[in-house]
Design a binder for these strands. Structure first.
Length: 175
DNA sequence: ACTCTGATGTACT
DNA sequence: GTACATCAGAGTA
């Protein structure tokens, strides 16, 4: 979808409020982070590799990678080399499914690793296009949003490229 | 509330 | 060998 063919800093706030449903489980996206090719913290910064290939693929597809050898993280691809990390959402569908997958059902989706686990996302979803029956992402752009420094990175950590829905109770951290 | 640590795959030097 | 877009559990307070 060309809706998604945008620079990550434009796509990231647009994805707030969007409804993400993966195989019957999901909810409303509350927190995102933008990564661009000129960003030292971005996987696309060194250029294309096997791992980040889908980050250079079509817009509106998923980029899923493994982090710390343990967890999966879900991104939405924008322009080539641009991606938006989905960090948190408000669970609305498939609650029982998500609770069964999570070790801590009190924190279902308030962090990228938890979110991927709750939604059952793995490396098999890398490169998958959004917009099929089992993999939907319906945009619903918010009127306003918060920005702040990103989380869990060391390079360019102060770039204000974390975005969140104001007042949401489902954020990985307060802004 | 906070700080520390173990778990562990993949990409990179 | 080292770094990493993390999480859970244990410890201190």
């Amino acid at each position: 979808m060309s809706d998604f063919a945008l620079p990550a800093p434009d796509l990231a706030p647009l994805l707030l409020g969007a409804r993400l449903i993966v195989r019957g489980a999901g909810g409303i996206i509350t927190e995102t982070e933008a990564y661009t090719p000129d960003d030292p913290a971005s996987h696309s910064f060194p250029g294309q590799t096997r791992r980040n290939a889908s980050m250079f693929g079509p817009a509106g597809h998923a980029y899923v990678y493994r982090i710390y050898g343990l967890h999966w993280c879900l991104n939405v691809v924008g322009l080539p080399g641009h991606a938006v990390l989905i960090r948190a959402l408000e669970p609305t569908e498939g609650l029982a499914q998500m609770q069964a997958r999570r070790r801590r059902p009190d924190r279902l989706t308030t962090g990228p690793g938890m979110l991927a686990e709750a939604l059952g996302i793995t490396g098999q979803d890398d490169g998958r296009p959004f917009g099929t029956a089992d993999f939907t992402l319906h945009l619903s752009p918010p009127g306003n949003w918060l920005t702040g420094p990103r989380i869990g990175i060391t390079k360019a950590a102060d770039w204000p490229r974390r975005y969140g829905l104001p007042g949401s109770a489902h954020l990985s951290r307060r802004f």
